[in-house]
């Protein structure tokens, strides 16, 4: 892409990332959650892939990073669900909801301004799912683009 497009993408990239992580972290208070925030972050990754040359961007966004994100997200999700089995009553029990400490503040019922420190394991599950969706969608984009680039290189060499 041209210089203007890549410069504008560099400028927009941190804002897209901050917005995505805001949606993930405030999933239990405002519209959004892990799936939507992960999709926004993957959009930022797609923006960088679309705006730069493949050989410039491939060493920065490595496949291993997205692989790790996806695996860590799913393992964290299953681990939190199993922790409910040991600390509470059942699988996926909300065992942090009433314990003061991490996300355990008692919520005021009805309409309230909202506090980030509520929700029990829901914010942690949001983060886990956000990591997984970010890794999964970025990996799909990465595979498709890598294949297209490799096809182009092979065709070029063949001629």
């Amino acid at each position: 892409m041209s210089k203007i497009v890549s410069a504008a993408a560099d400028f927009l990239y941190p804002f897209v990332m901050i917005f995505g992580f805001y949606i993930v972290l405030h999933g239990h208070l405002t519209p959004g959650g892990g799936f939507q925030g992960g999709a926004v972050i993957a959009t930022g990754v797609a923006l960088m892939f679309a705006a730069h040359r493949y050989r410039d961007i491939a060493p920065i966004f490595k496949k291993a990073i997205f692989n790790t994100c996806e695996t860590v997200g799913l393992v964290l999700f299953i681990g939190l669900a199993f922790a409910g089995l040991f600390y509470g009553k059942s699988f996926m029990y909300n065992w942090l909801a009433r314990i003061p400490g991490l996300f355990g503040e008692q919520v005021s019922y009805g309409v309230n301004p909202g506090s980030l420190d509520t929700g029990g394991i829901i914010p942690l599950l949001n983060i886990a799912v956000g990591l997984e969706v970010l890794g999964a969608l970025s990996l799909v984009i990465y595979y498709l683009l890598t294949y297209v680039v490799q096809m182009g290189v092979n065709k070029h060499h063949g001629q």
Binding site: P31, G33, G104
Partner: peptide, 15 residues
Amino acid sequence: QEQTGANNIVTAVVF
């Protein structure tokens, strides 16, 4: 709200 502690009921249902 009282059972999960989340203000967003859709997130409470999903998670």
